[in-house]
Design a protein around this nucleic acid. Structure first.
Lengths: 112, 112
DNA sequence: TAAATATACCTAATTTTCTTATATATACAA
DNA sequence: TTGTATATATAAGAAAATTAGGTATATTTA
């Protein structure tokens, strides 16, 4: 991979999941977090991230709060109640997706 | 899931993988195979499948042969040499994708 | 026998999502 | 002072999927 920035429709789920583990997070922080977690395999580009954040906010899943830190403006995002519900739902879908994909690709590890 | 027909960019990989396990396969057969393998969770729609097959053929990854069976025309697809190489490559990407996605979603089972 | 379902292919319009490129701006290090 | 890191944003285009249609034959069911 490395080159592929393809997040394949899982971007919303990733954003919601990241936010479910903390009080709030800002965009740039998400890009760094994803890079760190995946050893640089997933690159969350701004062109994909910011529109996705704006969409989730418009849908009422995210709240925002702008703060200036070290002279730079940050836009913090946090889950709304609706967002928390959506997170649970999307995680279920993602789990099913991964599981079934592994079945098709015949890569599901045989574990108890 | 159930409702989501979202295959999220993995459709090409799925097609190549299905074909790697057999000599040849036709489109409708792929839809049934995917439905069977996933317990109905993944629905491979024709609107997604056929354009994908045509694209892979145009790229030289698939060969075709039309045969009439029981009065109905079937278009059999098989992997070319180039297609076999692409299959191996795409499978590697898919494995990395799933692995890293599981890390981000914190759902990676702790196994040896 | 007529209607519905299953088999089997296809495309076109639209929408969604992502890539690529660009823009702005501040802080810090070389 | 030039580049890198931090931080957000949008716009044009491409890619991929959804939705919705179309054609046709075979089989099953009412």
């Amino acid at each position: 991979m490395k080159d592929t920035k393809l997040l394949k429709g899982t971007l919303q789920t990733i954003i919601l999941k990241l936010l479910s583990g903390t009080k709030r997070m800002y965009g740039y922080e998400m890009t760094q977090q994803v890079k760190l977690l995946t050893g640089g395999e997933f690159i969350l580009t701004e062109g994909a991230l910011y529109p996705a954040l704006h969409k989730l906010e418009a849908e009422g899943l995210l709240d925002t709060a702008i703060e200036v830190v070290d002279g730079r403006a940050r836009k913090y995002y946090s889950l709304t109640v609706k967002g928390k519900k959506a997170q649970v739902s999307k995680m279920k879908d993602a789990l099913t997706f991964v599981e079934k994909l592994q079945v098709i690709l015949n890569t599901k590890p045989i574990v108890s």
